[in-house]
Write a protein that binds this DNA or RNA. Structure first.
Length: 283
DNA sequence: CTCGGCCTGCTC
DNA sequence: GAGCAGGCCGAG
């Protein structure tokens, strides 16, 4: 569910609310998100630790501790909520903790953090200091940092026969895009999602690089996209859903040319595009 | 590189 | 009951 803009929004809100607090108690209600880590190891890593800050790498969140970090990935339906003890539950949202709440962190000064994940595709675990970098080493460049260059992007696509849609979902090529923002970036760049990665022209490559950065920046500015499950740690919805140009707009007129938006399946994911603004070119 | 699997809940 | 959903991983 959450892609880079949503995770970045969560990071900002969470950092503001929990930095400087100390973890007082840890309770795990479902061990699946821990993977191979034991509940005991998680608890030992977190307990009594003071939170130094919250960072993001691709769609991962890193809650930095005095020693090591709590790593969180939200998968499709993961949510993080920061509340104060006794805080009234926002209307329309479940009372926490509910049956989908898998981790509860009680902090000092009455703060509480809940990790909730209906489908349980998400994960959380404690990482020792020396394991943080290796854990994230498989990820490609951060699209909003200077390390994401046009030249590097071009090289990553050379000779690739998979569709550009599949390649943009690959976190090793560029880190942080998901199904929504891939479709939106390809629309903005005027490139059909079916295009083979290695077939992009120099010009398309440049446009796509720019479009990726632009759509992500804009989506962060609007605090992400809420289709159904996404809420920030203060239970607020995002605002970018009203600005999507192709995602979820099958059959509706293209904002540029009026042609009905197409939908198909590519890289096993629902894919949306404008057949006229994103012509399939072969070269 | 592509596919199936992991999960639950919602909409046909 | 089937199909679909914002992600990722491992198998072949």
């Amino acid at each position: 569910m959450p892609e880079l803009p949503e995770v970045e929004t969560i990071r900002r809100v969470l950092a503001e609310k929990i930095t400087g607090h100390r973890i007082v108690s840890v309770s795990v209600h479902h061990p699946k998100p821990l993977g191979k880590q034991s509940v005991a190891e998680l608890k030992a890593g977190l307990i009594h630790q003071k939170i130094q800050g919250v960072e993001r790498r691709a769609k991962f969140l890193l809650v930095r501790l005095e020693t090591g970090a709590l790593l969180v990935h939200l998968g499709m339906t993961g949510q993080l909520f920061a509340r104060t003890r006794g805080q009234k539950n926002p209307p329309g949202l479940p009372t926490l903790p509910d049956k989908h709440t898998h981790l509860v962190l009680e902090l000092d000064r009455q703060a509480i953090v809940f990790f909730r994940d209906i489908r349980r595709f998400g994960r959380f675990r404690w990482l020792a200091p020396e394991r943080v970098a290796p854990y994230l080493a498989h990820l490609g460049p951060e699209p909003l940092l200077p390390e994401f260059t046009v030249e590097g992007f071009r090289k990553a696509l050379v000779g690739r026969t998979a569709s550009i849609k599949a390649l943009l979902l690959n976190q090793k090529i560029v880190a942080g895009l998901g199904n929504i923002y891939v479709d939106e970036a390809l629309f903005r760049a005027g490139i059909a999602p079916q295009t083979k990665g290695g077939k992009l022209t120099t010009k398309q490559n440049l446009r796509l690089h720019g479009a990726i950065r632009e759509v992500l920046r804009e989506a962060i500015r609007f605090r992400g996209t809420t289709l159904s499950d996404y809420f920030d740690p203060e239970s607020r919805r995002g605002g970018f859903q009203d600005r999507l140009k192709v995602y979820g707009r099958e059959g509706e007129p293209c904002v540029t040319c009026g042609t009905p938006i197409s939908k198909g399946v590519l890289a096993q994911r629902g894919t949306h595009w404008c057949g006229k603004c994103q012509p399939v070119v072969r070269k």
